[in-house]
Amino acid sequence: MTLTAAIYLFGGLTALATLLMIFERDPVKAAMLMLAALLSTAGLYLAFSAQLLAALQIILYAGAIMTLFIVAITVTPAAWRDTRTARPAGAVRLKARTLGLAAAAVILAELLKVSAGVKTVTFSPEFSETGTLDLARLLFGRFAFQFELLSLVILAAIVAAVALAAKRKEAQ
């Protein structure tokens, strides 16, 4: 009973924080709301007894990625202005809204398609207390090749980012 309550609580918190983030105009406040959403997702994992996933969620997303986001945002001029930024003109706003709504519709359709499949998945009987072993078996066993390939893709992305940044400096 407690676990079900926790699942609804953290699920609701995640949804609420995400919605507030979308409608927040101040970039730092939006980033902090996203942090709240990430942390309550970690709580959701805990309620599902996936302790490793919860810990990794906090270490990687809240501890590393959001830190970089917030550091980057706090040094932008927008984070240091006292007055609100002027709203864009009507035509631009309309275009942005149409594009945004279209993107949201696509993502929502995809999510619905995926969640239909999720409903039929059940816990495997040998699911351990923390889920660590199962996760490790999948990552380093069945999906080892894809997992290693992904790390190569990320490495290529880092090298490309460095190369692009270096080129821009030369142009100046």
């Binding site: 970690a42 919860a54 990794l56 906090i58 501890g63 830190t67 917030i70 550091v71 923390t130």
Partner: peptide
């Protein structure tokens, strides 16, 4: 008694960064 106590330590100590960033900004 957490079976993944060490991960818990790393996760929460990572959150302390926000005190520094927010305080500074």
């Amino acid at each position: 008694e957490l079976p993944l106590g060490l991960f818990f330590v790393l996760a929460l100590s990572g959150l302390a960064i926000y005190g520094v960033i927010l305080g500074g900004w």
